[in-house]
Design a protein around this nucleic acid. Structure first.
Length: 480
DNA sequence: TTTTGAGTTGTTCGA
DNA sequence: GTCGAACAACTCAAA
C-alpha cells in the first residue's frame, strides 16, 4: 500500500471545491488533520466568538469526513511540532494545505516546507480561499491596486475563476494516528455561557453554508441593492462566518451567482452588487498581503499622527451598548448577543467610535475581533481603517455618520432598534432615535428614565462632530 | 511624461 | 419638504 499523505486543514473547513484536498486524494491515502494552535497569530489569535464557531464547524467537518469513509484527526499545540509529529507517526511523504493570507501565514508555510524537507517529505500549497491570487491582479504599470473600483474591474477581465470541484474519493490510510477530543478543547464558553441559543441562529459547517447561500440567492438577493441597507430586512447573505472558516469557497458563491444571472437576467444588477462585496473580501486580502501591518498601523501614514483619545468610560459605554444613541446601542448589543452585526450598523458604530469618541480604530478592531463570528483579519482591519479615514480608498474625513439620521433613515419603524434595545420599545417612532427630546410625559408613559434605565447621550452629536472635524483638520498641514 | 477623470456606503446648509 | 452644493484637496489609474 502506498504511503499516506497529510491534509492539513486550516481556515478551509469544507470538502467541496478544495483544490488542495483533491490533489492530496490523488497522491495517496489521506490523513485529514486539524491542529488547534491557540498561539497562532499572536495578538491576533482566534477570538472568543470565533472559537465557538470553530467548535461546531470542526464537528460538522468530522461528520462529513466520516460520511466519506474518512475521519478528522485533531491535535492541539504548536503547528510545526504537531505536523512534524504526525509525519513521524504516519510516515507520510507529503503535506497538502490551502494558502492563507494572514501576515504570519507565509512564514509558517515556509517553516512547514523546511521541516517537511528535513524529513524527506514535500509540502504542497494550493489556492482555494480567494477568487484571485494577490500576485495576479495588477495595474497597467504593474503595481497593486489601491482603489476598489478599478481593482474589481481588473479582476473581471482576468480569466474567470475555475468551476467548483466535487469532493474527491478519500482512500483510508492503513492505520489512523490518535486524535484528541474536540470537547476537551473547551472552545465553547461555559461560565458564563454567552453563546446561549446561538445554535438556533447559526448552522456552522459546509451544509449550513450551502443552505445560507441558496436561501439568499433564491429569496433575498432580488432586493439586495436597497434592502441590504436596512437592518430589519433579510436581504443580506449572512455568509461571512462561513466564508471566514472556508466552509464555502468564493468560487461556489461566484458560480452560483452567475447561474442565477443567466436564469433571471433581471436580477443581474442586484447579483453584481452582491458579488462586489465578495470583491471587497478579495480587495482586503490583497491589501493585507501588500501591507501586512494593516491590523496595526495606518495605511495612510499621516494618520499615525492623529490625536486619538482613549477615555475608558466612553469605550466601555460603546462596548456595552450604553451610549444613549439607540441605533449605536442596538448594534453593539446585537454584536454581543449574537456574534454578528448588520453591515449598515457596523458602519454607524464604527463611525461613532472613531469620530464621535475620537477613539483609535484599533480599539474597535480588537473588540470586533473578539466578538464577531466572522472576524477576518483582512476585512476587519481594512474596514476599520476605511471608516477611520486612514485606509485605502477610505471614507473622507468629513463623512461623520449622524446616529439620529441613520436610525431614522434605515430603521424608521424601529423594528431592529426596539429588538435590541427593548427598554425603548414603547417610545414613539418620533423620539426613538432622540429620546432626550421626548417630553417628560412621553418618556414616563414609555417607562423610560433617562440616566436611569436608559443613558443620556455620552456625547453631544453637534459638539462631537465639530471636535472630529477639527481633529482631522490637524492632519491637513502634515507633510508625511 | 503629462494629463485627465474618477473615487462604497454621508451630513449640513441654504435656496 | 426638496434639492444641489460644499465639505478639501488628493491620490490613483489609465490614456
Amino acid at each position: 500500500m502506498s504511503k499516506p499523505v497529510i491534509y492539513w486543514f486550516r481556515q478551509d473547513l469544507r470538502l467541496v471545491d478544495l483544490p488542495a484536498l483533491i490533489a492530496a486524494a490523488k497522491a495517496g491515502p489521506v490523513v485529514p488533520v486539524f491542529i488547534w494552535d491557540e498561539e497562532l497569530g499572536g495578538e491576533w489569535c482566534m477570538g472568543g466568538a470565533s472559537q465557538w464557531w470553530l467548535h461546531h464547524s470542526l464537528g460538522q467537518l468530522h461528520q462529513g469526513l466520516e460520511q466519506n469513509g474518512s475521519r478528522l484527526i485533531l491535535r492541539r499545540g504548536d503547528t510545526l511540532k504537531e505536523l512534524a509529529q504526525l509525519l513521524e507517526e504516519t510516515e507520510a511523504t507529503q503535506v497538502f494545505a490551502s494558502r492563507q493570507y494572514q501576515p504570519w501565514a507565509a512564514g509558517l508555510e515556509q517553516q512547514v516546507r523546511d521541516m517537511a524537507a528535513g524529513r524527506g517529505a514535500d509540502f504542497k500549497r494550493y489556492s482555494g480561499t480567494l477568487l484571485f491570487e494577490p500576485e495576479t491582479v495588477r495595474t497597467g504599470s504593474g503595481t497593486p491596486f489601491k482603489v476598489f473600483t478599478p481593482f474589481w474591474r481588473a479582476c473581471q477581465k482576468l480569466e474567470a475563476p475555475a468551476l467548483p470541484q466535487p469532493v474527491p474519493l478519500l482512500k483510508k490510510p492503513a492505520s489512523w494516528p490518535n486524535s484528541a477530543s474536540l470537547d476537551d478543547w473547551s472552545l465553547q464558553p461555559r461560565k458564563p455561557n454567552w453563546a446561549l441559543g446561538w445554535e438556533n441562529l447559526w448552522s456552522p459547517g459546509e451544509m449550513g453554508a450551502s443552505k445560507a447561500l441558496h436561501t439568499f440567492l433564491e429569496g433575498h438577493v432580488a432586493d439586495y441593492g436597497d434592502g441590504r441597507d436596512f437592518p430589519a430586512r433579510p436581504n443580506t447573505s449572512r455568509l461571512s462566518p462561513h466564508l471566514k472558516f472556508g466552509e464555502i469557497s468564493p468560487r461556489q458563491v461566484w458560480w452560483a451567482a452567475q447561474a442565477l444571472k443567466e436564469e433571471h437576467g433581471a436580477l443581474g444588477g442586484a447579483v453584481d452588487k452582491f458579488l462586489s462585496e465578495i470583491g471587497w473580501r478579495e480587495f482586503c486580502n490583497h491589501l493585507l498581503t501588500l501591507f501586512p501591518a494593516m491590523p496595526d498601523r495606518a495605511f495612510n501614514p499621516k494618520f499615525e499622527y492623529f490625536p486619538w483619545q482613549a477615555d475608558p468610560q466612553l469605550i466601555r459605554a460603546w462596548q456595552q451598548g450604553q451610549t444613549g444613541y439607540p441605533i449605536v446601542d442596538a448594534g453593539m448589543r446585537e454584536l454581543w448577543q449574537t456574534g454578528f452585526m448588520h453591515n449598515r450598523v457596523r458602519m454607524v458604530v464604527a463611525s461613532f467610535l472613531t469620530k464621535h469618541l475620537l477613539t483609535h480604530w484599533r480599539i474597535g478592531q480588537q473588540w470586533f475581533w473578539d466578538c464577531l463570528l466572522d472576524a477576518d483579519l483582512a476585512s476587519n482591519a481594512c474596514s476599520w481603517q476605511w471608516v477611520g479615514g486612514s485606509g485605502a480608498d477610505a471614507a473622507p474625513y468629513f463623512r461623520i455618520f449622524n446616529p439620529v439620521a441613520q436610525g431614522e433613515k434605515f430603521d424608521k419603524a424601529g423594528v431592529y432598534t426596539r429588538r435590541w434595545v427593548p427598554e425603548l420599545a414603547e417610545l414613539p417612532d418620533k423620539y426613538l432615535y432622540k429620546p432626550w427630546e421626548a417630553p417628560e410625559l412621553t418618556l414616563a408613559a414609555a417607562g423610560i428614565e433617562l440616566g436611569g434605565n436608559y443613558p443620556t447621550p455620552i456625547v453631544d452629536h453637534r459638539e462631537a462632530r465639530e471636535a472630529a472635524l477639527s481633529a482631522y483638520a490637524t492632519l491637513k498641514t502634515l507633510a508625511v
